[in-house]
C-alpha cells in the first residue's frame, strides 16, 4: 500500500477537525474525496503534507511503509508527495523557472543525483510545458504573481509534472476554472497517471470527475469518511446533494 492513514485525528488551535479518519491508497489508484464545505477536506491535505499548525493528536500516516508524521514539509516533498494548493501563494520577484530549478535540484540532491545542468533543465521544462499547454511566457513570470485563477491552477499541475511525484494531492484544483482550463488540468493528470503513482483529488463538485475518472470516491463528513464507493457515488452525490448523508447518519 502506498498510503495508509489510520485513525487520524487533527487539530488546529486545539479544535479537532479530523476525527478518526482511515484511508488506504494503492499504487495506480485515483481516489476522490468529496464533501460539504468545512468538513476537513483541506485539513487532511495539509496534515499529510506536514503543514505547520496542523497538530496530529492521534493516529498515523504511513507512506511507503514509513510514518511520515513529524517530518518537515520539504522532507515529505522529497519523499514524493505533492500538494496542489487550493490557493497558491504569490512569491513576488521569484520566477517560476528559478523556483522550479531550486525545487528540482533539492529533490535530486536528496536522491543522490547531480543537479541538472541549465540545458537539461530547460529541455525538461519545455517538455512538461507542452503537457499542460502552458505558455512560454508564464514561466518567466514570478510565481503566481498576478496570475488568473486558471493560470494558478495550471501552474500547479505544471509543477506536479516537473517534480514527478508518487502521490499527488490536488486540493480543490477545479475551483475557479473555466471548462477549457479544467480540460487542460484533467489532461495533465490523465497523462501523468500510471501504475507507479497515485492521486488523491479533493473536490466539492462532481464536475472534475467527468474528466478524471476516479477508482474510488469517499465522502468526508465531520472529520470522518462516512461513505466510500466507486465513481457512481459521485454521480449520486451530484444528484442528491449532501443532505441525505446527514439524514442517513442520524438514522
Amino acid at each position: 500500500m502506498l498510503l495508509n492513514i489510520k485513525n487520524l485525528h487533527v487539530s488546529i488551535n486545539n479544535k479537532e477537525i479530523i476525527k478518526g479518519l482511515n484511508l488506504g491508497i494503492n499504487y495506480g489508484e485515483v481516489h476522490a474525496i468529496m464533501g460539504p464545505n468545512g468538513t476537513g477536506k483541506s485539513t487532511l491535505a495539509a496534515a499529510i503534507s506536514g503543514k505547520p499548525g496542523y497538530e496530529v493528536t492521534k493516529g498515523e500516516i504511513v507512506y511507503k511503509g514509513i510514518n511520515i508524521l513529524g517530518m518537515s514539509p520539504e522532507e515529505i516533498s522529497w519523499e514524493g508527495i505533492f500538494l496542489g494548493f487550493q490557493y497558491p501563494v504569490e512569491i513576488p520577484g521569484v520566477s517560476i523557472t528559478n523556483f522550479l530549478r531550486a525545487a528540482l535540484n533539492e529533490h535530486r540532491e536528496h536522491q543522490g543525483l547531480k543537479p541538472l545542468t541549465g540545458s537539461e533543465f530547460l529541455s525538461k521544462l519545455n517538455e512538461k510545458k507542452k503537457l499542460v499547454e502552458i505558455q512560454s511566457k508564464l514561466t518567466n513570470r514570478s510565481v503566481n504573481e498576478g496570475f488568473s485563477g486558471g493560470e494558478k491552477k495550471k501552474n500547479e499541475i505544471f509543477q506536479m509534472a516537473m517534480l514527478d511525484p508518487t502521490l499527488s494531492i490536488l486540493d480543490e484544483t477545479d475551483s475557479g476554472l473555466d471548462i477549457d482550463a479544467l480540460r487542460i488540468v484533467a489532461n495533465g493528470v490523465n497523462t501523468l497517471r500510471s501504475e507507479v503513482n497515485a492521486f488523491l483529488l479533493i473536490t466539492h463538485y462532481q464536475r472534475l470527475l467527468d474528466y478524471i475518472i476516479p477508482d474510488f470516491v469517499h465522502v468526508l463528513y465531520d472529520g470522518k469518511i462516512v461513505k466510500s464507493g466507486g465513481k457512481e457515488l459521485a454521480l449520486f452525490l451530484e444528484k442528491k446533494g449532501y443532505n441525505w448523508i446527514k439524514e442517513e447518519l442520524i438514522d
Binding site: S95, N98, S142
Partner: peptide, 20 residues
C-alpha cells in the same frame, strides 16, 4: 510552506524569496 512543499528547504526558500 509553499516552497517547502515543493521540496525547497526553509534556508533556500528564504534566499529565493529575498533574491526575488
Amino acid at each position: 510552506f509553499y516552497c517547502n512543499q515543493r521540496g525547497i528547504s526553509t534556508e533556500s526558500a528564504i534566499g529565493l524569496i529575498v533574491n526575488g
